[in-house]
Design a protein around this nucleic acid. Sequence first.
RNA 1: CGGGGUGUAGCGCAGCCCGGUUAGCGCGCGUCGUUCGGGACGACGAGGCCGGAGGUUCGAAUCCUCUCACCCCGACCA
Length: 439
Amino acid sequence: KMFKETGHQNAYFPLFVPKSLFEAEEKNAEGFAKECAVVTHYRLKTDPEDPKKLIVDPEAKLEEELVVRPTSEALIWNTYKNWIQSYRDLPILINQWANVVRWEMRTRLFLRTAEFLWQEGHTAHATKKEAIAETAQMNSVYAEFAENFMSMPVIQGKKTESERFAGAEETYCIEALMQDGKALQAGTSHFLGQNFAKAFDVKFASKEGKLEYVWATSWGVSTRLMGALIMTHSDDKGLVLPPKLAPYQVVIVPIYKGEEQLAEISKVVNKLVVELRLEGISVKYDDRDTHKPGWKFAQYELQGVPVRLAIGPKDLEKGTIELARRDTLTKEFVQQEEIVQKVKSLMVEIQNNLFQRVLAFRNEHITEVNDFEEFKKVLKTKGGFLSAHWDGTAETEEKIKELTKATIRCIPFEREEEPGTCVFSGKPSQGRVLFAKAY
RNA sequence: CGGGGUGUAGCGCAGCCCGGUUAGCGCGCGUCGUUCGGGACGACGAGGCCGGAGGUUCGAAUCCUCUCACCCCGACCA
């Protein structure tokens, strides 16, 4: 929906990238080469030594290997070449939902899986200015999604050269902080300059009649965000889902003895379900007789349902309903006639409460440090982001990483002009950057 | 690729060092009864090529060799 609001179109491109296309943009190819799954054959056959087994048919070797896309720039720019002749063909604003494969040496559930799902946007523009604006816009779209839907505060900034996307001129990012004090890169948006246009020879005739290379961006967020969501809000009882992303926002559990009582309760609940749905709230009424109330309470807490309503014989008598919040784990009794409004307002309140809670934690875990001993100490004891001066060199960045495992997560867009001296080298610094141990 | 670890019932594990009736426990599962406002209780019951192959032995979950898979740590991570 957000992509449509920003004028993007959904499209789908092939999974396999012929190796010759993949290698066209050198830096991109070099950056991803170490983690590519490659198709070399197109057929299996029965093992002559064991009819129950299959072997790769050596006769079926491909003339040119196919790379399973780790990202789609190469394929897409090879296509854009055919779509772009004139400034009238620009901009092209395309998004694709797809799976990609990156053969990491070591995977991490949700955060770095060999195969993952993502959306990747690929845009083509007539001017550098427009492309940079697009890069910034999409980074902001991601930040808004993280903050307003996931209730996960993020810091927007740009990556240092060594952390940049292979083939990009500039990489913008959103960085989040997990509950264990480690940072997570939650999304990236890249200004690709004219690198891919040059590699794939994509030129357009400008208004002035000159042939110019096209300017590009690409950007993406992935199923890693599910890991982020889990690690941002969950507690020992399980998931905590923000209302805007919860498949069920409300679950209703009847407490009853015998079919008759259930029928009475259901009369009240069925009416309530209709009313809640009219307010656009997704509700599940779990009247299964196969599980006990206590079991259901625990189960929906595990699944992170934001609000739970329970209604039993006592409530029928008093005209009340028990309401439990997942975010605060508090319970209260609410009059039946007030429940719809109460739930409606809670949807907003819980969404905000989660955000504020995480924001407070995040802000408490941004620590200004001014010398390297302090840097190491805070990193070890408190974790989180360290706001420190950096001399701007890759050598210092590398050295700090080697000594502490902390990397520069980003150079925040919003930072004060504050000249100082590098926390490691003591050389002059333009301003503070954010370091952290990251996933 | 280096280091460490684990494969035994659907899930989690004990048993292995020191070989020996019918391989055990918890959860889960089925039936019946009592329950039902925070993961109920009791009784009965079902469920196992002990990861795979080979070997030693009268006898292997247990010892030996090989092998496969998975997990953790590290290197790596646009």
